[in-house]
């Protein structure tokens, strides 16, 4: 099955983006984590029928993509992949919530449609911001930033290992399913029992590998605590980055940016 391996390669590309060398890449990871967190909280805190006020928030990922020299199309495709899941969540809103909220000439738009669209937009915003953070910082740096911000060490170790071995597990899974495909001759779909045994084997192999990894850690003096190097410094640039974006988000949370821009323009032209 090439799809697993393809997905892995795609994932590795995201990882490589973090090796870039722009001013944004060089910022202390903690600043980026904090700003992304504030962004997500602000976006999620809007009322369920809010739509227009959310739109200006797209500026945040757009500006970071621009300054960070990230491939916009690639990231947009990643976000688009996840949007259908958000759509499923909001799918029933138009059916249950039929009160007319907006009248565009003969077209009446119900509140359900608006809340559904709001869910999708929020998903795109939050997922997009998370991908941008990942592409600008890299997973390991995010983990150590979280640790320095106070996340318990145990969780950080878990995250580290999850990320490190997702590639190995993915490769093993890819190999196993390719072996399965090569011997099923495209005749019919393998039965559930076959898949069950395949997944079971993967689990056992993971278990054995975990044991071997633990041995390798013991061999190098592991005694329970995970030593980490601390790199990066929270300086003026970081403080300005956090303060600037937070102020911007707060402003957009308290004022409807789209409306503001609209009235500014119409006021100007009238």
């Amino acid at each position: 099955m090439t799809s697993i391996e393809g997905a892995l390669l795609d994932f590795k590309r995201l990882d490589r983006l973090a090796a870039g060398d722009t001013a944004l890449h060089r910022l202390d990871p903690r600043a980026k984590v904090i700003v992304t967190f504030v962004f997500i909280v602000t976006v999620v805190s809007f009322g369920r029928y809010e739509l227009s006020a959310l739109v200006p928030f797209f500026l945040f990922p757009a500006i970071l993509v621009g300054l960070g020299n990230l491939p916009a199309g690639y990231l947009a495709r990643k976000v688009a992949l996840l949007c259908p899941f958000a759509l499923v969540i909001g799918l029933f809103n138009p059916l249950f919530d039929r009160a007319v909220a907006l009248q565009l000439g003969p077209l009446a738009i119900s509140a359900g449609w608006i809340s559904c669209a709001s869910i999708v937009v929020r998903a795109a915003l939050t997922v997009g911001a998370a991908f941008v953070l990942l592409a600008l910082t890299g997973f390991p740096a995010i983990c150590s930033a979280l640790e320095r911000l106070g996340l318990p060490g145990m969780f950080v170790v878990q995250l580290h290992f999850l990320y490190r071995y997702i590639f190995v597990l993915g490769e093993e899974g890819g190999q196993a399913s390719r072996a399965l495909e090569l011997r099923s001759f495209g005749a019919k779909r393998p039965s559930l029992a076959t898949y069950g045994s395949l997944v079971g084997h993967l689990l056992l192999r993971t278990w054995l590998r975990a044991e071997r990894v633990h041995r390798a850690m013991l061999a190098r003096g592991f005694s329970g605590a995970f030593p980490t190097r601390t790199v990066g410094r929270f300086g003026m640039a970081e403080a300005a980055f956090v303060a600037g974006w937070t102020a911007f988000f707060l402003f957009l949370r308290l004022n409807n940016g789209a409306q503001l821009l609209g009235s500014l323009l119409t006021g100007h032209f009238s």
Binding site: P140, R212, P227
Partner: peptide, 25 residues
């Protein structure tokens, strides 16, 4: 001790961190 499968031995995010793991301990 160097194990047979290097994937078992290299468990840190970067090569540098991995080589530093033992000395840090």
């Amino acid at each position: 001790m160097v194990f047979q499968d290097p994937d078992d031995q290299l468990f840190m995010p970067t090569v540098y961190d991995d080589v530093a793991f033992g000395p840090l301990n």
